[in-house]
Design a binder for these strands. Structure first.
Lengths: 352, 352
DNA sequence: GTGAAAGCGCTAACAT
DNA sequence: ATGTTAGCGCTTTCAC
């Protein structure tokens, strides 16, 4: 027994037939044992399990699903923003946890916002999942319209959207109330006495971006702030751009006394830009999305904290409810956000 | 056409037989078209594709794999630390990218270090992957010994380890040279004049933790520093513990002038502890693993930066080489790390 | 260039 | 309590 090749375990992948032969039973009996079905004697179970162990047999669930009545593959597909993003990472983690607890495997695929042809990649990934007959798809789509998923949905694939609402398709969605969150953030700054507040946002092609901008605008309008005192910078996707955007804001006749960075990466870039400009102790900043080191900055970064873990858990819960036969009307589920004050968002305006 | 049920697309999932019937050809011809096989006339291809479009047919790859000669499922399984950890997230992302480019789907599963019975969960997840006949497994295992994977390996499942070396199993591994990296970090502090350096590490059950501690100890020994000046605190897994550990260090007759936090979460906890103790501008700190906001801290956090993206890419490369038939000897692949100076690691000792 | 028949590994339905 | 037969949706083999 030098190299394992003379070991009792065979090198070829065993099938149920091999196990049945070795145990001296029929294949259906092996199937019963492997699937914990009733009506098998303890003695037979023992003999089958012994053979399974000797051969290191693992049930082939794909083959079984071919014939099985419910035709469930016990897999779901996840299409999210990159797992590199802490938000997506937590959503991913929560869904995975929920799925594995229910014996369901999770396919993961990332969608980078900045890809060349995002819709093409999105459709390719989803098609790959459909060809593998996933029971459901949990999606953060980049495309403008998801009606192309209608056929797959009618054919039985369950769908739940995360961090977005579906367009051209009726399906459950789980997300933060982006508009209300942006409003809260803005009102937080207003409550601390600010009147001139700048908004830094992501690309407006992005639906969540538009929602956040709407929330900001609504809050400013309600506070009777003229649009001239609510400057907007969209599409800040780079540190250099952040510096430039801040420079533009500071060059205004009446520069803003506070900044709302409505996306997590933009928040980081803005922390740096304010620092570089030497105004980080003077201009208030509130960011969107929390991250581990936010409280270690100086000043600590005040953020609108989403609850990605709860978003993921709830999305998974909806998914498994649908898979389990829930046919209630599709709905949008909002997960609450909270403003976490850490210092940067509580800097008062100079006048105060 | 009010609700789509009267639409041309059927609600039942179509099979090749349906497509063949609608296109007026045999199933084998449909199979040829779906798999881009030669010897089909353009006219036939067009008719088949038309039927495919009308029925919204998607090939069932699981069914096909049952009979296909190579029996490849075009899926791999990933068992990593939680995608919540930025290191794992980047490794995950790189592997995913590489796999999808090769038409391979990726199953993802997280393994939390702090689970109750980590090996049980590990084996459950891996078994789930094997039952789905993945072509390969890319693993960051928690178990002490992986010889239980030998049978699956002999049966054809390729395996590549990430961030760990396999024990009791011969397989490729891709990881940072933890020992050398810890040595570099320590030498960086020594080069800045420090003689009394504390080491804060993860649980010593963890193999990478032991390697890092070894690297630290070797560097200190080479510098002829007595062990009394190289205090070690292991298993700091909490902010409170970090405070306590720092307090113990500062209470020493000759407190350390520098600290090496040899794990990413511990680095964060230590930043906070030093800040709380009011010594963050006085005691040097070097962390392990980079993170997005490290340069935004004050002082900026000097770290040993691993290259998780390259680790992931290389692991995927090895995996696909093995799947493609590479039978060369299994090897350990070290991916270089770099010390990124940002301020905290360059604070001189009081005497200098 | 095309199709008919066999069978991949398993489960359903029906024996016994 | 156990085994036998058919067939899931596809690819292989081989015939035309």
């Amino acid at each position: 027994m030098i190299d394992g090749s003379s070991h009792a375990t065979a090198d070829a992948r065993p099938t149920m037939k091999h196990v049945a032969a070795l145990a001296g039973v029929g294949v259906k009996t092996v199937s019963r044992v492997m699937n914990n079905e009733p009506n098998v004697s303890q003695a037979t179970i023992a003999r089958v399990m012994d053979a399974v162990g000797r051969l290191n047999y693992e049930l082939d669930v794909n083959a079984g699903n071919l014939k099985r009545a419910d035709r469930r593959t016990m897999t779901i597909g996840l299409v999210l923003g990159s797992v590199t993003n802490p938000f997506s990472g937590l959503v991913h983690r929560a869904i995975e946890e929920y799925a594995w607890e229910r014996g369901t495997a999770v396919y993961a695929a990332s969608l980078d916002d900045d890809a060349t042809r995002p819709e093409a990649r999105e459709e390719t990934l989803i098609s790959a999942f459909l060809r593998r007959r996933v029971d459901g798809l949990i999606l953060t789509t980049t495309s403008e319209n998801q009606s192309y998923l209608g056929a797959a949905q009618r054919q039985g694939t369950k769908m739940v959207f995360v961090d977005r609402q579906p367009v051209g398709l009726v399906a459950d969605a789980v997300l933060s109330d982006n508009r209300a969150s942006a409003r809260s953030a803005t009102e937080h700054l207003l409550a601390h006495g600010h009147r001139r507040i700048a908004y830094l946002g992501d690309k407006p092609q992005n639906w969540t971006s538009r929602e956040r901008l709407d929330g900001f605008s609504a809050a400013m309008r309600d506070a009777a702030i003229p649009a001239a005192d609510a400057p907007i910078e969209n599409g800040v996707s780079d540190v250099v751009e952040a510096d430039a955007a801040l420079a533009r804001l500071l060059a205004r006749p009446h520069p803003p006394t506070a900044v709302f960075a409505a996306q997590n990466l933009i928040s980081l870039r803005m922390v740096k830009a304010l620092r570089t400009a030497g105004v980080h102790q003077r201009i208030a900043l509130i960011g969107f999305d929390d991250f581990p080191a936010a409280d270690l900055l100086d000043p600590g970064l005040t953020v609108v904290s989403q609850n990605p873990t709860e978003i993921g858990r709830l999305a998974a819960e909806r998914m498994f409810a649908r898979i389990g036969g829930d046919t209630s009307a599709a709905a949008v589920h909002h997960v609450p956000t909270t403003v976490v004050p850490r210092g940067s968002g509580e800097i008062p305006p100079p006048s105060a």
